[in-house]
């Protein structure tokens, strides 16, 4: 399938999911109500619900999915390993730790930008540590192992914060927040994270050609004039910006970056550059679909989005490992 056609198809599915997302909520609104509310007509309560609650939720879902799907595709291209994911190289856990610090010390209450800034700073810090340990001329295995170590460190620090938390309510707030959710996010959250997701996205999209050349091997790529160092920095910083921003807005939503590029890869004939845009769209589709599911599954308090994506993603991860082992033996 041509990548442009694939992207158009994914875009169409995404539009349908956005419509579904606008239709679903505690209040029963029909399509006419929603259309009217979108242009500011009709019952003011409905206008508020559609414009201020459901639309930001759908937009943030798109941002979160795009950031995670695109980062996954770019990292898998960079590491030439289908198991790479922002979660695996420690970006998500570092961002999560940064956000927990902002919540724990109450900075997030005083200054709304503290949460994304702290999450992105820690994501970038984790990633820079990764580059310092496994940056120059190291193999893929070193990079992945370093990522796992950094991820463990970030989780340990997060647990330390929870361990020392003086207040059981703050503790449950941190835990719930780490589970990931799009509930009751406002346009402020969208505005806060969008510039960073866009910036990171542009960096990663621009790495497409380098990633294509890299499929020939690191030496071949270097001999063809691709600066590996620059490529690594570009993808890793792009990923830190995008993932840090969405973790700050929605908490940890796992496995999107792993599942989506893997599902779409056969459709783009395994070309990393052709996988980037479809993975961003596919990520948005997966997150919006999961967010519809958490609203549809009947439960006393709404299921957390990250719980659902992990429930689907973790078995997928295991199946992927098994498939790789079988194809080798």
């Amino acid at each position: 399938m041509r990548p442009a056609f694939l992207s158009a198809l994914l875009g169409a599915i995404l539009s349908l999911l956005v419509l579904a997302s606008l239709h679903l909520g505690a209040a029963a609104l029909d399509s006419a109500d929603i259309l009217a509310a979108l242009v500011g007509q009709g019952d003011p309560r409905m206008v508020t619900i559609v414009q201020e609650i459901r639309l930001p939720r759908a937009l943030l879902g798109i941002l979160v999915g795009c950031a995670l799907g695109l980062s996954g595709a770019a990292l898998q291209g960079l590491l030439r390993n289908p198991l790479a994911d922002p979660g695996i190289i420690g970006t998500s856990a570092s961002a999560g730790f940064g956000a927990v610090v902002a919540l724990y010390f109450g900075w997030a209450l005083v200054f709304p930008w503290a949460l994304p800034l702290s999450a992105m700073t820690c994501a970038a810090g984790g990633t820079l540590l990764l580059l310092a340990v496994a940056g120059r001329d190291s193999g893929t295995l070193t990079l992945i192992l370093s990522g796992i170590a950094i991820s463990s460190l970030a989780v340990a620090l997060t647990s330390l914060a929870m361990n020392l938390s003086p207040n059981p309510f703050a503790l449950s707030e941190i835990v719930l927040w780490l589970l990931g959710s799009l509930k009751d996010r406002s346009l402020d959250d969208v505005v806060l994270s969008a510039p960073f997701v866009l910036g990171g996205g542009v960096l990663m999209m621009a790495a497409g050609r380098g990633l294509d050349v890299l499929t020939l091997g690191e030496e071949a790529a270097a001999s063809l004039g691709v600066s590996l160092r620059r490529l690594r920095l570009q993808v890793v910083i792009g990923g830190a910006l995008a993932v840090g921003a969405v973790v700050a807005a929605a908490g940890s939503v796992g496995f999107v970056g792993l599942v989506v590029p893997h599902l779409l890869r056969p459709w783009v004939r395994h070309r990393p550059s052709a996988l980037l845009l479809p993975s961003a769209l596919g990520g948005a589709i997966l997150v919006l679909a999961a967010d519809l599911a958490v609203r549809l599954i009947p439960a006393r308090s709404e299921l957390m989005l990250g719980v659902l994506t992990s429930l689907v993603g973790a078995p997928f991860f295991l199946a992927l490992i098994l498939k790789m082992r079988w194809s080798r033996s």
Binding site: G25, A27, R54, K183, D184, S301
Partner: peptide, 8 residues
Amino acid sequence: PASAEAVL
């Protein structure tokens, strides 16, 4: 449920 939409 603790959601803005339900409260509104």
